[in-house]
């Protein structure tokens, strides 16, 4: 997902406190920042929310790539609004992570140094305009699958950020579907572009949910803490079941020969993505890993004088105001 393969951190706390904490979670209570929480809960959440935030920020890059080349002024305005939303989502999430005692700069530096990850999906390039449709339809569609249940996650600030994000995410998916529908209903060449975008984004979208975690201890701990609500396989199945009919409506073909309706389970059988490719992308060997981090590093470096300048200006003005006040008294 936007937070993939988040390992739960070991907890070394008093068993009685842990039991009381678990009882609160089981009773559906929300945990707030200043309340007692196990160290493992805190650390796992920092990693998960941080990774989620980084994904929103890095996720601006593949789409930002097309802002200047959008085919109409309306599409350009829509794409700008969408990319701006992604920045907003990143900011909501960074703030939620900061309530756990990590600083914004620290999070940024961990992203830039590779100690914290972002979703594998943003390491794929957006080669054609149809890709922008596929990203909204498939990538945001997959994100919604994961984010809707996270509105009920046990950590208050995370859950509240998710509520805001989900409200906005629906626009993202619908504009993507609208875009790719225009292409699919267009000339033969445009339809071929739409099909090509689906071909390239289908499996990377399935990878977003992460490998099967039925047996994973990390997953079990996160689910007990209600910072993960569904297993990766449940969400992936839901995504496929939702998306296949949408592709059929467009007259596009899901690039999976094994795709077949399974009456017994009331869902589609489908092929697993290539998990070796997934691990390679996570390790940094995807098509755009280097480019993405370079772009973030450049933005961070190039913005330094601006961040510092505004801070210096604010301090100077404060000092002047104080001096004027002293003089008046």
């Amino acid at each position: 997902m936007y937070a993939q393969m988040v390992k739960s951190e070991a907890t070394n706390d008093d068993p009685e406190m842990l039991a009381a904490f678990q009882a609160r979670i089981d009773a559906g209570e929300r945990i707030e920042p200043k309340e007692w929480m196990p160290e493992g809960y805190r650390k796992t959440l920092i990693r998960q929310i941080g990774q989620h935030a980084h994904s929103e920020i890095v996720g601006q890059l593949p789409e930002g790539n097309w802002i200047t080349r959008a085919p109409t002024l309306e599409r350009k305005a829509i794409l700008l609004a969408k990319v701006q939303d992604e920045a907003g989502h990143g900011l909501y999430l960074y703030c939620a992570a900061e309530t756990l005692g990590v600083s914004r700069d620290d999070l940024t530096e961990q992203l830039l140094s590779g100690r914290m990850k972002y979703s594998s999906i943003f390491n794929y390039p957006t080669l054609t305009w149809a890709d922008i449709g596929a990203v909204g339809w498939l990538v945001d569609g997959a994100a919604i699958m994961n984010q809707v249940p996270l509105q009920r996650t046990s950590f208050g600030p995370y859950a509240r950020a998710m509520v805001r994000i989900c409200k906005e995410e629906s626009f993202h998916q619908r504009q993507g579907y609208d875009l790719i529908r225009k292409m699919a209903e267009g000339t033969a060449e445009q339809k071929a572009m739409a099909q090509d975008a689906l071909n390239r984004f289908w499996y990377p979208s399935l990878m977003m949910f992460g490998p099967s975690d039925k047996e994973s201890v990390h997953s079990a701990q996160s689910m007990a803490w209600k910072i993960k609500i569904n297993t990766n396989d449940e969400l992936r199945q839901k995504f496929v079941d939702q998306t296949v009919p949408q592709a059929q409506f467009l007259g596009l073909t899901v690039p999976d020969e094994a795709l077949a309706w399974n009456e017994d389970k009331g869902g589609w059988d489908f092929s697993e993505p290539d998990w070796n490719e997934f691990y390679e992308v996570l390790k940094g060997n995807g098509p755009c890993n280097v480019e993405r981090i370079e772009a973030r590093q450049k933005a961070w470096n190039d913005g330094a004088w601006f961040r510092d300048g505004l801070m210096a200006h604010a301090k100077k003005r404060d000092a002047r105001r104080q001096a004027a006040q002293m003089a008046a008294e």
Partner: peptide
């Protein structure tokens, strides 16, 4: 509704 970082009140 949430929080944010800024150098001063105006920003």
């Amino acid at each position: 509704v949430g929080s944010l970082h800024a150098p001063d009140a105006e920003l």
